[in-house]
Design a protein around this nucleic acid. Structure first.
Lengths: 292, 292
DNA sequence: TTTCTTGGCGTAGAAAAACTAAGGCTATTC
DNA sequence: GAATAGCCTTAGTTTTTCTACGCCAAGAAA
């Protein structure tokens, strides 16, 4: 009963954040990606929180984690809390007068679609700094601090989304290869170039077009679409082109369509705006400029 | 426009917590006390947040800080966010099946009033562990993780408060001194013993009783009331007694009242319960036992 | 079967954050 | 007009947090 034990410290906020992300994804790896740390760090955070509270939050299985009943019951409160944190964070960031405009985009979009538009936009807003972050998966615009995001996806009814263009898909290759195909050579005899992230593109194209392919999964894979584009330009094989990503190459004639017809991938190029943003006016103007 | 800059890290949560506390108190020192860190730590946290956001949050003056307009506009969002965090934290803690019952109390109460009651309560709940934290100021039961708090204060209308006893004040001393006073010796001729935290007790008592004191602020000061009690027992002077803190000494006769009459300090001994708590039933039972 | 892939755990060392202690500044007090 | 008391900052150290890397188990592919 001795007096003046140290006032108990507050809860470990970073551990709570890690738990919230892990619980939402039901995966330490995914949580680590979201938070930009290694899965080990998430693991430690979760353990910290479990120790601190004395409650077991996850059941560790060999092929993934599973929330315990206790953990499941907490997810809503934790998500609400970090939503509130995100609101506060946005309020804070929106006060900053001279911060960059942060754009998130798929790597391929950032490399092949954005630059030309951004050049134009820079002309309209010479005082603004732009920073572009390439992300494999679209960020949560409520949680993360981006002012714009450009990704492929299926538009939903939510506001703050602008459909920029449908995603049209068609085979392309270097002019030299195109001539050989025009002479009757089969598609199969060339290498099919793949992007890591869209590995089933050729299979769906084959189904849509009715043109059979012996093995739509064969051929070199590239981690970045732009690498595949360069290879295609060099004549390494045939690439499935996405309209909006090849504007430049098609205009320059370094790549040509193999056939006339293109097919929709079912997705669209979508521009998303956060619900509330600083520089509302500018961001909206930028959005309009991107639509052209 | 290079690809793959690191995904921007989330906001510094601990810095946000420090800012919230500092903004609420308009003082780095007070915030440090609440968070149990030095003012320097708070200062750094705030600076971190200012740097991170690029917004100036506080105006540093020589005799204290002042929120800037920006800072003021953020306080509500931040407080809401950390309220939500507190809710989540409570949910988490309430799941813990075998945690201690945490009691917060004024040091004097923890030392002089609680022990006898706690002994009784332990008898009723032999399976429960109790931990007592002595605090100069009552904790926020919504923010902090206490199951009970016992402090002097003015009861407000909020529920979850139980008035245990009015705080009655009267001079006490050792029996030996009491005899000398009975023989007509003036109060002033003895040392007035003070508790650090209630430094104006003697002055208000003098006003209430109409008994003049030459210098009600003079005399030794003790950082803990229980020290003053021990000194009074040893005959070092006259102490202003609080009924509930001297039960034992009065019963044992080691201290005796100098006069018959006692005066209310205007405060009461108040038991507070958090809105929602784990072990609701037990905590309520404990509350009832404390009322006896 | 064997092999490969995926996801999580543990540990050691490196990197980053947080904390304390001492110092400086400004107003107030004697 | 020095001394005092508040309050904040700075420098340096302690503590935490993160990563890298090896390990293990379970499911998928060969």
């Amino acid at each position: 009963m001795s007096v003046a034990p140290p006032r108990p410290k507050g809860p470990p906020l970073n551990a709570m954040r890690a738990f919230e992300a892990a619980a939402r994804h039901c995966s330490f790896v995914a949580a680590g990606e979201e938070l930009n740390v290694t899965p080990g760090a998430v693991s430690q955070h979760v353990k910290t929180l479990e120790t601190w509270s004395g409650v077991s939050l996850f059941q560790r299985n060999a092929q993934g984690v599973e929330l315990t009943a206790a953990g499941r019951s907490l997810l809503k409160d934790f998500s609400d809390a970090f939503d509130a944190i995100a609101v506060a964070t946005h309020s804070l960031r929106n006060l900053s007068p001279d911060a960059d405009v942060h754009i998130a985009a798929l790597p391929s979009i950032a490399q092949l679609w954005l630059p030309t538009r951004l050049g134009k936009i820079r002309g309209h807003f010479p005082d603004l700094n732009f920073s572009v972050t390439a992300l494999e998966t679209p960020p949560s615009l409520t949680r993360d601090l981006f002012d714009l995001s450009v990704f492929f996806g299926v538009p939903d009814d939510s506001l703050n989304q602008i459909v920029l263009a449908p995603d049209e898909v068609f085979p392309v290759c270097s002019p030299k290869l195109a001539k050989q195909i025009a002479k009757g050579q089969k598609l199969d005899s060339f290498a099919l170039l793949h992007d890591q992230t869209w590995h089933d593109d050729w299979a769906t194209w084959s189904k849509n077009s009715g043109i059979p392919l012996e093995d739509p999964e064969s051929g070199p894979r590239y981690s970045l679409y732009s690498l595949a584009v360069e290879e295609a330009k060099a004549g390494a094989g045939i690439l499935l082109g996405h309209t909006c990503l090849l504007e430049e190459a098609l205009a320059a004639g370094t790549l040509v369509p193999v056939f006339d017809k293109s097919y929709s991938s079912g997705r669209s190029l979508i521009l998303s705006l956060p619900h509330a943003s600083r520089r509302r006016a500018e961001i909206n103007d930028i959005g309009k400029l991107l639509q052209l």
